[in-house]
Design a protein around this nucleic acid. Structure first.
Ligand SMILES: NC(=O)c1ccc[n+]([C@@H]2O[C@H](COP(=O)([O-])OP(=O)(O)OC[C@H]3O[C@@H](n4cnc5c(N)ncnc54)[C@H](O)[C@@H]3O)[C@@H](O)[C@H]2O)c1
Ligand SMILES: NC(=O)c1ccc[n+]([C@@H]2O[C@H](COP(=O)([O-])OP(=O)(O)OC[C@H]3O[C@@H](n4cnc5c(N)ncnc54)[C@H](O)[C@@H]3O)[C@@H](O)[C@H]2O)c1
Lengths: 204, 204
DNA sequence: GTGGCTTTGTGAATGTGAGCACAAGCACAA
DNA sequence: TTGTGCTTGTGCTCACATTCACAAAGCCAC
């Protein structure tokens, strides 16, 4: 394919493919066609072919896509081939759930530090990590941590974001129900469960 | 505006407006212009005006939108003017965090029941709710519960979805990393934190 | 090899949403 | 009553995303 800007939506779907292919690898399947994969993921086959083709030829005509090497190539595209470390800010209910959640490892992601500002929490353990003081942010860069998750109250989110950005964090997953101001070279993705639930009655 | 199908993206943004207006109401502001609101929400003013105009005229030219009545009208559009009850399936780490989360009430949403299949959990309390057996699903309809949240392991999600749909649930928020098959009159929204975090390294 | 079957890769077409620019409309002051 | 200033509501255009349709390409059996 000639030069094409890669759609954001395509990038958003890539981890879906990574996960599906990881599962297929476990099942021992060696190749998968766009049709089979589409059925699993409830997508259209041409969508998958086009998504993958943005990054070059992955498959074999008549056969499909090789499960293992395709997974590896997508991981490389998403920079998930090297372990990516993240800091979690906010060791509350949601934060501790996230801290012990094993589901990040499929993507080579690791929660490598937990920060809170509550003195009674600092020093105690969540899983194998010790909760650190916000001042520990200064050490993040040296520890190779470039991603952050915000699980603090909405009022504190902007302040924490500022601290993380200052500390060299380049990507943020914001769980708090608010908007964040960050320099434009920092990427923010927000998740708001209440908003997501809030649209359902409209469709019902 | 002439007849227009309302974009899904517009619907997805509506709770954003509800939340912002609720905050403005608390602050005692009586009207807000699309420009001011856009600044708060990091959107473009015409986007907000267009979104709102899909549902008719809300504002006053030269002044802006009345905070209270606009909030009320949007709530009505989203069917959030009547309290909406939801059942939470899965009283694990994430489930219990959600169960005690107060952030749903801005939207008139309420977690009204918690279900788990672990016998050691059934009967114990999370907040003011008692964890119920999956058999309790049969009572959901009678209790006016039409929404469901799935916070169970991915392997169990489809089974739980089936039970809820059978019990008359019409909208599902799926927190498990998997796709769900449901009848098409049931609306599913999925949230996958790991996937959301997984795209960040690409942009960094 | 050659033919038939299958599936990819991709231009072109279609569908969907975002942004702009401006006319229409309201408030308020003079 | 008229004028001024501001903000909404919206047709139009452009950008982005999805879907289609088909040629190109590999595999396998004979
Ligand atoms: N619990 C949920 O299910 C849920 C759902 C959707 C969104 N959220 C959002 O996630 C965020 C966290 O929710 P939660 O339920 O875990 O709340 P929580 O109150 O249980 O935890 C918040 C934690 O953040 C810490 N904190 C507060 N200010 C801080 C600061 N400036 N620096 C560092 N740490 C700070 C607190 O000490 C606490 O440990 C909130 O913004 C909430 O709106 C939660
Ligand atoms: N914890 C997180 O931060 C996080 C993040 C992203 C996604 N998720 C997803 O959310 C889901 C729940 O995560 P968790 O960390 O709370 O897991 P968990 O293991 O702590 O909790 C799962 C709960 O579901 C219950 N359960 C299992 N099968 C059930 C069934 N058939 N019917 C009813 N209940 C059943 C279990 O008894 C348990 O209480 C998982 O799918 C997970 O992938 C969790």
């Amino acid at each position: 394919m000639k030069y094409h800007k890669i759609p954001d939506e395509t990038i958003r779907r890539m981890p879906l493919y990574v996960r599906a292919l990881a599962l297929l690898e476990q099942e021992g399947q060696e190749t998968i066609s766009s049709r089979q994969l589409a059925e699993r993921l409830r997508l259209n086959p041409p969508q998958i072919r086009k998504d993958l083709s943005y990054f070059g030829a992955f498959g074999t005509r008549g056969i499909g896509y090789p499960v293992i090497s395709t997974a590896r190539r997508i991981r490389a595209i998403l920079r998930l081939d090297v372990p990516q470390k993240a800091v979690l800010v906010g060791a509350g209910r949601l934060g501790t759930a996230i801290a012990v959640y094993p589901g990040f490892s499929v993507f080579g992601l690791e929660i490598a530090a937990i920060i809170d500002n509550n003195p009674t929490k600092i020093g105690s353990r969540v899983g194998r990590l010790e909760i650190e003081h916000i001042a520990a942010a200064a050490t993040l860069k040296a520890r190779g941590i470039r991603l952050g998750l915000l699980a603090v109250p909405a009022e504190a989110a902007q302040g924490c974001a500022d601290v993380l950005v200052q500390a060299g964090v380049k990507g943020l997953l914001n769980l708090a129900p608010c908007c964040l101001d960050v320099p434009k070279q920092v990427k923010v993705v927000s998740i708001d469960m209440a908003m997501a639930l809030g649209v359902l009655p409209y469709y019902v």
